[in-house]
């Protein structure tokens, strides 16, 4: 795959001119929206970053869990839960027999899995090109309260839970993760809804003194 030909699915929602573009994992993304101090401040209130460049891999089928285990992947035991691999990659179990795996920052697990031996019967590849977001900050629950009708408070969400719900009318996958000393939420949605959902969430974030920030604020690998 010639990854330099990739552009983030959220690109349409990004302002022209005032932001810094760069290439991460071969994908054109915005690496900085405002000055670093301001991005730090936004992050405290309600930061939102584009993580769509992180490689993704998906399989489903009755033998998918076994196949992943054979590849040395940690498989979450419960449906609608997630686990972390030692390299920091994420494994989300979407229902009983479908999995979404996302590379750790700087990792390449998904590419390895894609190239792995032919998939046995009952294992089907699922291409994943979702728009992907990182959210954090004091007001993140206020954002959730506006875009989602179900209870997403920390107490309700559980530790390793994956929630498939709707944000502002769009189907999303959501999980919570404590990483690099912070509480963060990860959100994935169909790439075609990416610009819309970004505009909605970034707009709400702005109202709470937050807003878009570069991914380097969350993953030190991209600072």
């Amino acid at each position: 795959m010639q990854t330099e030909k990739l552009i983030t699915p959220i690109a349409h929602a990004f302002p022209v001119g005032s932001v810094a573009w760069g290439v991460i994992n071969g994908m054109q993304v915005v690496t900085r929206f405002v000055g670093s101090d301001e991005e730090e401040a936004r992050k405290e209130f309600l930061g939102i970053a584009d993580a769509s460049f992180l490689g993704k891999f998906g399989v489903k089928g009755r033998n998918a869990a076994q196949w992943l285990q054979d590849q040395g992947i940690v498989v979450p035991e419960q449906p609608n839960s997630w686990a972390g691999n030692a390299d920091g990659s994420l494994v989300l179990r979407l229902g009983g027999s479908e999995f979404l795996i996302e590379n750790a920052p700087g990792g390449n697990l998904c590419e390895k899995l894609l190239k792995a031996d032919a998939k046995p019967a009952g294992v089907y590849l699922v291409p994943h090109v979702e728009a992907s977001f990182v959210l954090s900050g004091n007001a993140v629950q206020e954002l959730f309260a506006e875009v989602c009708s179900i209870d997403l408070t920390r107490a309700a969400l559980g530790v390793q839970e994956v929630v498939m719900t709707q944000f502002a009318g769009v189907s999303v996958v959501l999980m919570h993760q404590d990483l690099e000393g912070e509480a963060r939420y990860r959100v994935w949605c169909d790439s075609s809804y990416g610009p819309y959902l970004w505009e909605v969430m970034a707009g709400i974030a702005n109202e709470h003194s937050g807003g878009p920030i570069g991914i380097g604020n969350y993953f030190s690998a991209y600072k």
């Binding site: 349409h12 502002a168 169909d190 075609s192 809804y193 610009p195 819309y196 909605v200």
Partner: peptide
């Protein structure tokens, strides 16, 4: 309320826009 209007953009939306496209709603797209 805020008035959510979910809509889908094709990955060629900006390309189309540059070419002078006038958009119409087809389903959510």
């Amino acid at each position: 309320g805020r008035g959510f209007h979910p809509h889908r953009l094709t990955p060629l939306h900006d390309v189309n826009h540059k070419l002078g496209a006038v958009f119409t709603d087809v389903g959510a797209w």
